[in-house]
Computed example of a mutant assay.
Amino acid sequence: MPRVTLQTIADRVGVSRMTVSNAFSRPDQLSPALRERVLAAAQELGYAGPDPTARALAKGTTGAVGILLTDSLRYAFTDLVAGGFLAAIAEELAPTGLAITLLTSSGSGDVVPARDVAIDGAVVYSCDPTSPAVSWLRRRHLPMVFVDQDQVDDVSSVNIADREGARAAAQHLVDLGHRRFAIAMNGENGRHGFIADPSTLVEGHASRQRRLGWFDVLEPAGLKPAFIRHPLEQTEDVRRDARFLLSADDRPTAFLCFSDTTAVGVRQAAEDLGLRVPEDLSIVGFDDGPVAVRMQPALTTVRQDVVEKGRAAAAALTEAIRRSRDGAPAAVSHVVLPAELVVRGSSGPAPRTPV
């Protein structure tokens, strides 16, 4: 089949090639009736539209924004909280016509996504701030928004009140009489397993803020928790280490977890050992994602509004892109959304008898 071009359509309709081009890219230059004739001819001839690459070069825009994630894109498709966040961004961007491109914070061979993929702007989502990928995006001078990242002066950000939420979770358990604590933490890079001194870890923003919030309560009370750390999706490793801690004579009666997903591994460890939740062990998560209400008993957790977080990130990015295109000065904003303790059935009074 011969290739259909703008000239092919122009010959069919009896207009100039520029008129056909305007029908797709500058519809205000044509009468509605003429544009309808051009588009009808294009559809009849099987024309897919102007080449996106050529259009991007002409307009100086790609029509896509990048979302920089952790090293593995698997997280975006398997973690329900991350999925809710990304879905909210997609929904907010839909009226703008901007598409989403997922970027890993690593590259293979000569390809470095953060450096090489054509995008109009980027959301940096819960990444190591020292990652070369973040550095590449900044060197490209792209409009950006940081989400679950440390604030910087020249980039808008959207964060959760992680420290306040974690503080409320720890205080809830202390008020219930618990004195033997364990913490199940998330961490992609660095050491995993049992951590003697968590303050020495290289941590992302959310991890550090939640740890600080828990210790805001535990340290003044003279409580020293056991501490385990694993990548978010490795619940089997959490389960193994939690089972080891819960097998000890002086086992913890309360577990604070970085996320609801992490709490699943702790709950499974308790089941393995025949421990009752919350009679023998209280568990508190973080996120209030779908898994929280599926657990039995339902999980006490700290709620963050991932939908609002996604909407706020998309709004900040589209504004940054608009101002960049208009040559206007950047308007940096820092949004901190609340975190709220949601008490359910997985937390209860500390056991009265020695365990």
Rank of each mutant, 00 (worst) to 15 (best):
21 S>Q: 08
20 V>T: 07
253 T>Y: 05
162 D>V: 00
183 I>C: 03
295 M>T: 13
351 P>N: 07
70 T>R: 14
189 N>D: 13
104 T>D: 02
133 A>Q: 09
93 L>H: 02
51 D>V: 07
63 G>F: 11
119 I>M: 07
185 M>Y: 05
110 D>S: 14
263 A>M: 05
300 T>C: 07
11 D>V: 00
335 V>E: 11
59 K>Y: 00
311 R>H: 08
311 R>F: 04
2 P>D: 09
114 A>R: 02
355 V>H: 14
154 D>H: 10
18 M>C: 00
132 P>Y: 10
75 Y>P: 00
293 V>K: 11
114 A>M: 06
91 E>T: 15
212 L>R: 12
38 V>M: 04
254 A>Q: 11
22 N>H: 14
90 A>G: 15
315 A>N: 12
234 Q>H: 14
221 A>R: 08
311 R>K: 07
335 V>D: 10
311 R>I: 01
246 L>R: 08
24 F>W: 08
121 G>T: 11
111 V>N: 03
160 I>D: 03
17 R>M: 13
36 E>R: 14
146 F>W: 05
210 R>V: 10
39 L>V: 09
140 R>E: 10
321 I>N: 04
189 N>S: 13
254 A>E: 12
295 M>F: 13
125 Y>W: 14
158 V>C: 09
256 L>M: 10
355 V>K: 09
185 M>G: 10
12 R>T: 13
88 A>P: 10
41 A>N: 11
247 S>I: 06
79 D>N: 14
343 V>S: 04
339 A>L: 02
205 H>T: 04
114 A>N: 02
62 T>M: 06
170 A>V: 08
34 L>R: 13
10 A>I: 00
14 G>Q: 01
64 A>M: 14
302 V>F: 06
161 A>G: 07
224 K>N: 11
146 F>T: 00
309 K>Q: 03
13 V>P: 06
64 A>T: 15
333 S>F: 00
225 P>K: 01
156 S>C: 09
84 G>T: 05
75 Y>H: 13
184 A>R: 01
121 G>W: 10
168 A>G: 02
69 L>V: 11
133 A>Y: 09
37 R>M: 04
347 S>C: 13
142 L>G: 11
188 E>V: 13
311 R>P: 06
186 N>G: 06
291 V>G: 01
222 G>N: 03
186 N>M: 10
13 V>R: 01
178 H>V: 08
22 N>G: 01
14 G>C: 06
117 V>G: 01
183 I>S: 00
142 L>A: 08
324 S>Q: 15
239 R>I: 02
242 A>G: 10
102 L>T: 03
235 T>H: 08
133 A>V: 10
90 A>F: 00
93 L>G: 06
347 S>A: 13
7 Q>A: 12
265 G>S: 12
21 S>P: 00
224 K>L: 09
104 T>Y: 01
213 G>K: 03
103 L>C: 03
163 R>N: 03
69 L>Q: 05
147 V>I: 05
46 G>I: 07
339 A>T: 07
192 H>A: 12
339 A>R: 01
71 D>V: 12
62 T>Y: 11
156 S>T: 12
291 V>T: 14
155 V>Q: 05
67 I>Q: 05
274 G>L: 06
43 Q>F: 00
293 V>I: 14
134 V>F: 08
254 A>W: 11
84 G>D: 12
179 R>C: 01
177 G>L: 06
81 V>D: 01
96 T>K: 07
245 L>E: 08
130 T>E: 15
25 S>L: 15
74 R>Q: 14
17 R>W: 05
292 A>I: 09
310 G>W: 01
172 H>S: 02
